[in-house]
Design a protein around this nucleic acid. Structure first.
Length: 886
DNA sequence: GGCATCACG
DNA sequence: ACGTACGTGATGCCT
């Protein structure tokens, strides 16, 4: 096979990158976006082409032969913006550090160098690829010279590839005739004058017919559109000169040395250092310096494609003291299984032939019966996959499972994701190749089929890293006092949540549809009315357009509140013009539009064939330890406004069941009372019916029965404020009072409950000293903000330090309750099941005959989840839908 | 993909 | 003086 050479038009690619990549700056203040884009494009093409030789050509700032030929050519090069100009020498440094040859010569443009080397390489029998952003280069295309033009389409960079025929297909002319076209059409970017009045169409017609400009001129009398004929006659000299300007010189006087261009290992240590300084973090792994360590590890990863061998591996798996596994799936299909049985045994077993998904997971399930410690990532997802293939985990075996993601989350709950790659770096001190690096943007299925070797590496690390990181994760959990939290609360919760998600909640699709249709009618009416009142139609959903109507056209006085313009939030609009019918209609429209899009239409799309909605509870998202619910979010179903609340009527129990809803009464305040140990508050909450009223009576020194509604409302706001990490500003905002008044409320509150203040202060103090806040059950929230010199950030940190222990402890308590409720329902042989958790609320689908037992279990386990100095009270109701039950 | 808005605890 | 309440997720607009 002939050798391949890749020639890169440095100037055009870096320009393209500069304008295509969002501005980036490293911490030294150097702009880096163009370099980043250039390297990304280069890597992509290198991976596709795998050339033997590589050279990048640059322009030199010096007059070329074109300047001598044509005066106006001077100064034609658009001056580079300074932000781009400064990046060019740095890019060259990076390329040189990678051992990549660059070429430039005074008096020559990059095009000419590329053309010259391309032709010479072709003459030596090489396959040539020229990478450029400039279509002029198409004139170089031949059977053996391919021009690649990068093109960004919807964020994905693809390249258009041109050999001779591709040029003809697209432009109807041969590659060399591209010059003729350009000479006729001109090119303002390159200041090639062309022939005025001749555009792409005419130029193409002329060249297709006459072959070149000279011949067209020879037949100028025949030329059909008079406009073209006159133009060519008048500007023929110009066209000839333009042709010379547009012609790439393929025979430059340049001493090119192929040996120097020979491509070696570009991922050098020197390049690593530069990439690190440029802060291209996702590129860094390509340049990893611990490549030797990686290679040693990767060598042991074994691809197992033979059925017998796979069988042996899985038999062996059943006998090890611990293992790690990863199921690779895509679009519901199991593609492969990764298994690490010891430091030296890692297997990647693709699903193929006799090795079916059912067989593979079935055999894995058999092994699970015997292995004392089983590690994976995203255990809940694995359970789902196993269950879909008929594998269930016995209750007694659940304790054997570890989830590395959850362990990493407990150690640092602030991260966005917990990937194998990050675990490798943090807990194994190893930089592993990223998925993008191995497969590019390919799907897993495609990668397995076409890049088996890369898949072996990817799959191998997937379980190897879990195996290697777990001991460290456990050790750190132990050291930080979170091992119990992990083993006794979070891991069992995985199984509880798995059950809830599998169960799903029944939804009356017809009722939901009707609800949506009713909304649509009213929305339509409001729309018409709003357009009438505004005197024109506009997009009511666009805050920008709405702002123009309200503040510019109608002249309502609204302060500019957001970064982008006027704020049109409900808060602003309500204050703005409570009397204005337009504003009132917009508010109602907004409310209905929200209900329709997010809830009526939104939820309908999630009803599965079983007639139920199966949300996903995320266990590793929040900073405080709460759960979150996605696809769809069932933790924010409307309740505060009656119309929205109606939607809860579509959540119904299955036949023979009712919904039972139990929610903790003011759990966070009770947690606060307990954690602070404030005798007054504890005493108050022990017997109180109405906590906010009692707070008001104590804070304002009024008999309980004489507390006014306003006083109660104020006390309630203070109670909330305390939980959020009180600030006089926040409270004043909430109550629409002055800051001073707010400050007085807070002061009085703290006088009444002195230990609360002590406790909150101690939370901040401890967080400052240790760098993290802690819940009653040892859950940590790191708080880097507290060290900030920025007042805003530090204040935020202080509020978080007060809130996290309270919100987090409440989250811990309900997690305990969930596990206990789940366990008891099963232990007592009941069919009723937990369906949802909404932070302080649990929803159960209870068989009517089990109702009494279910209520007893809920009440005992929720109230008994923690021993606090105050009772943990719940409100419990049942109903034929969620509306009634809550 | 960021921003504004709004739904919940 | 600084300029905010704590924690989430979904939708629609717009660059």
């Amino acid at each position: 096979m002939s050798e391949k050479i890749l020639l890169v038009d440095g100037h055009s690619i870096i320009n393209r990158a500069f304008y295509g990549v969002t501005d980036l700056t490293n911490s030294e203040g150097l702009h880096t976006n163009a370099i980043y884009g250039f390297l990304n494009t280069l890597f992509k093409v290198l991976e596709e082409e795998k050339p033997d030789y590589l050279t990048v050509a640059f322009d030199v700032k010096a007059p070329t032969f074109r300047h001598q030929m044509y005066d106006a050519y001077k100064g034609t090069r658009k001056p580079m913006p300074a932000e781009l100009h400064e990046q060019v020498p740095v890019l060259k440094d990076v390329l040189h550090a990678m051992g990549i040859e660059t070429m430039e010569k005074a008096g020559l443009e990059a095009d000419d160098l590329l053309g010259t080397v391309a032709r010479r390489s072709e003459a030596r029998g090489m396959e040539v690829t020229v990478l450029s952003g400039d279509r002029d280069l198409l004139q170089l295309a031949t059977e053996h010279i391919r021009i690649r033009l990068p093109k960004t389409k919807g964020g994905v960079t693809e390249t258009e590839n041109y050999n001779t025929q591709d040029v003809i297909d697209k432009y109807q002319v041969a590659p060399l005739q591209i010059i003729e076209l350009k000479a006729l059409m001109g090119d303002s970017a390159d200041n090639i004058p062309g022939v005025p009045g001749i555009g792409e169409k005419t130029a193409t017609n002329l060249i297709v017919q006459y072959g070149n400009i000279e011949n067209a001129y020879a037949h100028v009398e025949e030329i059909k559109p008079n406009r073209a004929k006159n133009a060519l006659q008048e500007h023929y000299d110009m066209a000839v000169m333009s042709k010379a300007l547009a012609t790439i010189n393929t025979d430059c006087d340049y001493d090119y040395d192929w040996d120097k261009a020979k491509l070696g290992n570009i991922y050098t240590e020197a390049a690593y250092a530069l990439i690190k300084r440029l802060e291209f973090k996702n590129m860094l792994s390509r340049f990893r310096v611990d490549a030797p360590a990686n290679e040693k590890i990767e060598k042991i990863f074994q691809m197992v494609e033979d059925f017998g061998e796979a069988d042996q591996v899985l038999t062996k798996a059943a006998a090890v003291p611990r293992l790690a596994f990863a199921v690779h799936q895509e679009e519901g299909q199991v593609l492969a299984l990764s298994l690490t049985l010891s430091e030296k045994e890692t297997y990647v077993i693709p699903v193929e032939g006799f090795v079916t998904a059912d067989w593979l997971l079935g055999r894995l399930g058999e092994a699970f019966a015997h292995v004392p410690e089983i590690t994976t990532l995203k255990l809940k997802e694995a359970l789902k996959c196993l269950s879909a293939h008929g594998v269930t985990i016995e209750k007694e075996r659940q304790g054997a499972f570890l989830d590395a993601e959850i362990a990493a989350y407990l150690l640092n709950p602030l991260k966005d994701s917990y990937t194998c790659e990050e675990l490798a770096k943090e807990y194994v001190s190893l930089t592993i190749p990223s998925r993008v690096e191995l497969f590019g943007k390919d799907k897993l299925t495609k990668a397995l089929e076409e890049k088996a070797e890369a898949f072996r590496i990817y799959g191998g690390y997937a379980s190897y890293i879990l195996y290697q990181s777990m001991p460290t994760l456990l050790a750190e959990l132990h050291e930080t006092g979170m091992e119990d939290l992990y083993r006794e609360m979070e891991l069992p919760l995985v199984f509880t949540l798995f059950g809830m998600e599998q169960e799903g909640i029944r939804v009356d699709a017809q009722a939901l549809k009707t609800y949506g249709e009713e909304l649509a009618v009213r929305i339509g009416e409001l729309e018409t009315k709003i357009y009438e009142e505004a005197g024109e139609t506009f997009n009511i959903n666009s805050p920008k357009q709405l702002g123009v109507i309200l503040f510019d056209k109608m002249g309502l006085k609204g302060g500019k509140k957001t970064k982008t313009g006027y704020s049109t939030s409900a808060e602003v609009l309500e204050k703005l013009a409570p009397e204005c019918p337009l504003v009132a209609d917009i508010l109602e429209y907004r409310q209905l539009a929200k209900l329709k899009s997010t809830y009526a239409d939104g939820l309908a799309a999630y009803i599965e064939p079983d007639g139920r909605i199966h949300t996903t509870f995320q266990q590793t998202i929040t900073a405080t330890g709460r759960l979150s619910s996605v696809e769809p979010n069932l933790q924010n179903i409307p309740i505060r406004m009656e119309l929205g609340r109606q939607i809860r009527k579509v959540f119904i129990p299955r036949e023979g069941c009712v919904l039972v809803d139990a929610d903790y009464s003011q759990i966070e305040l009770r947690v606060l009372a307990h954690m602070s140990g404030d005798a007054n508050l504890i005493h108050a909450y022990r017997g109180a019916q109405d906590i906010h009223r009692l707070t008001a009576s104590q804070v304002f020194h009024i008999p309980f029965d004489e507390v006014t509604d306003l006083q109660r409302r104020n006390a309630k706001a203070v109670n909330f404020g305390i939980v959020y990490g009180i600030s006089s500003f926040g409270l004043s905002q909430d109550l629409s009072i002055s800051r001073k008044e707010a400050q007085e409320y807070i002061q009085k509150y703290f006088e009444t409950y002195p230990k609360i203040k002590e406790f909150l202060d101690s939370c901040v103090e401890e967080a400052k000293e240790k760098g993290y806040a802690r819940t009653m059950f040892g859950r940590r929230r790191p708080m880097p903000e507290l060290k900030s010199s920025n007042f805003m950030q530090r204040s935020f940190g202080e509020r978080v330090a007060m809130n996290a222990p309270i919100q987090g402890t409440a989250a811990d308590i309900i997690k305990i309750a969930m596990n206990r409720v789940d366990r008891r329902l099963k232990a007592e042989g009941l069919k009723s099941r937990l369906l949802l958790q909404v932070h302080d609320e649990l929803l159960i689908e209870a068989y009517t005959e089990e109702l009494d037992k279910v209520e007893q279990i809920l009440s005992e386990e929720m109230q008994g989840a923690a021993e606090l100095a105050v009772p943990l009270e719940i409100d419990m109701k049942q109903g034929k839908n969620w509306y009634e039950a809550h």
